[in-house]
Design a protein around this nucleic acid. Structure first.
Length: 343
RNA sequence: CCGCCCUUAGCUCAGACUGGUAGAGCAGUCGACUGUAGAUCGACUUGCCCCCCGUUCAAAUCGGGGAGGGCGGACCA
C-alpha cells in the first residue's frame, strides 16, 4: 500500500487530524497508535465505531495498543467503584476483542494494556508530580472539561486525569493518539507539555461524537438513546425505530450516522452494498453503493426514514450479533462488572 | 481542631418557622396526529423525605446522636 492510500485509510471517518503533515511524515517509519478506554459504564454501539476504526489502523500497517484505563475510570468522579476496576477491565477487553473481530480487525495483534501496569512505575510517577507542579489549575481544568464529569465541587482526581493521559502517550510509546473529539483538550495539553517531559507530541486523530438516538449527543446515562452490545434483535429494532430521525435532515440524525460510521465501513470492507428492502407500494427495493449516494437520496426525500430505519436495524444487529453471542457465552463478565444491573 | 449550611422522585429543587405519612419543572411511559422519530395535544407512573433514638394520638417537619457532602475560620513567631 502506498503512502497516499495509507494516509487516506488513517484519516477517513475522522473529525480532525492534528496534523495532516505530521501524520504523513510518520508514515516514513513504522508508527504506532493507541486508544484508551476508561472501563466505566457498559460498552455500547458508540464505542463500536471507534473500535471499528482500529481495523483501518491495522490495515494501514500501524501497530495498535488499546489501553484499558482502569485508574482513570475511578479518577473521574469514581465512575467505577475501586473494587470493580478489575472486573470491568476484563469485561472491556473481552468486548473490545469481540467488536474488533466483528469489524474485520485482528484482536490478536492488538496490544492490550491496563493502566496500572505502568502508571505506578517510578519514572511515570515522578514525571506526573513534576507535571502537576508545572501545570496550572485552570489549564488542567480546561483540558479536561469535555471529558471529566463537571461538578460544583470537583475532586482532585479529575485534574490528575489529563496529566496521566498525557503521560500515557509517552509510556506506551505511541506516535498517534486516537480518541473521540471530546479528548481534544487533553491531547492538546499533551502535545504542549510532553516535550518538556521526555516525550514527543503525538499526532492526534479524533473521531466524531455520534448523535444519540434521541437527538443530541449520545449520553451514557440515557438508556434508550443508545444500543447496547447485548441488545437482542428485537431491542435493536425497537430502539432504532424510536430514534429521532427527521425526514431529509442529516444533522443530529443518529440513524444516518451509524450507517455512515459503522455499517458502511464494514460493508465496504466486504465489498457489499447497502440494501433497503422497501415495500412495492413505496417504490420497491433500493441499493446504495456508497454512503454519499444514500445520503443524497435521503436528503432528496427518495429514502423515507422508516425504510432507512428498517434496513439500518438489520445491519446494526448483524454487526453486534457476534459480540452479543460472545458476551452471553460469558455471563460472569457482566455479572461481576455490573453487579447492580445483573444478578 | 472550631463554626455554619446542605441531604426529599432518574435530575434540579419546593414543602420544615406554624407536626396531620409529599409536590413542581424537566426526564420517563402510554395514547392521538403524521408512512419513522421529533414537535404538538391528551393521559399516566415514580419516593426506606440520609440513618438511629426520642417527644407526640400523629414526625419529611420538633429534640438528641450519627453518616455523607459543602463553605468558612483558626494556625501563619
Amino acid at each position: 500500500m502506498n503512502t497516499a492510500d495509507r494516509l487516506d485509510l488513517l484519516s477517513r471517518y475522522t473529525e480532525e487530524v492534528v496534523t495532516e503533515d505530521e501524520l504523513e511524515a510518520l508514515l516514513d517509519g513504522e508508527p504506532t497508535a493507541y486508544i484508551g478506554y476508561a472501563p466505566t459504564g457498559e460498552m455500547h454501539i458508540g464505542h463500536f465505531t471507534t473500535i471499528r476504526k482500529l481495523a483501518d489502523f491495522q490495515q494501514a500497517g500501524v501497530d495498535v495498543t488499546v489501553l484499558i484505563a482502569d485508574l482513570h475510570a475511578h479518577l473521574d468522579s469514581e465512575k467505577s467503584p475501586w473494587d470493580l476496576l478489575d472486573a470491568r477491565s476484563e469485561y472491556y477487553e473481552a468486548s473490545i476483542r469481540a467488536m474488533l473481530d466483528s469489524a474485520g480487525g485482528d484482536p490478536n495483534s492488538v496490544d492490550f494494556v491496563r493502566g496500572r501496569e505502568f502508571q505506578l512505575d517510578e519514572e511515570y510517577t515522578l514525571e506526573m508530580y513534576r507535571m502537576a507542579a508545572e501545570t496550572t489549575l485552570s489549564r488542567t481544568q480546561r483540558a479536561a472539561s469535555e471529558v471529566v464529569r463537571q461538578s460544583d465541587s470537583p475532586a482532585l482526581g479529575g485534574l490528575i486525569y489529563p496529566l496521566m493521559q498525557s503521560l500515557d502517550v509517552k509510556a506506551l510509546d505511541a506516535d498517534i493518539a486516537y480518541g473521540g473529539i471530546d479528548q481534544r483538550g487533553i491531547y492538546m495539553l499533551g502535545r504542549e507539555v510532553l516535550p518538556d517531559h521526555g516525550g514527543d507530541s503525538p499526532v492526534c486523530l479524533f473521531a466524531p461524537l455520534l448523535s444519540g438516538l434521541s437527538g443530541g449527543k449520545m449520553s451514557a446515562s440515557e438508556a434508550g438513546s443508545k444500543i447496547n452490545l447485548t441488545d437482542d434483535p428485537g431491542q435493536v429494532e425497537e430502539k432504532i425505530d424510536g430514534a429521532y430521525c427527521p425526514q431529509g435532515e442529516v444533522e443530529d440524525n443518529g440513524v444516518l450516522e451509524y450507517v455512515r460510521f459503522l455499517v458502511y465501513p464494514i460493508l465496504e470492507q466486504r465489498g457489499e452494498d447497502f440494501v433497503v428492502e422497501r415495500p412495492e407500494e413505496y417504490g420497491g427495493t433500493l441499493t446504495f453503493e456508497s454512503y454519499d449516494d444514500l445520503e443524497a437520496a435521503y436528503v432528496e426525500g427518495d429514502l423515507h426514514p422508516q425504510d432507512l430505519k428498517n434496513a439500518a436495524a438489520g445491519y446494526i444487529d448483524e454487526a453486534i450479533a457476534p459480540i452479543r453471542e460472545r458476551l452471553t457465552d460469558r455471563p460472569d463478565l457482566l455479572v461481576e462488572a455490573y453487579p447492580e444491573s445483573y444478578e
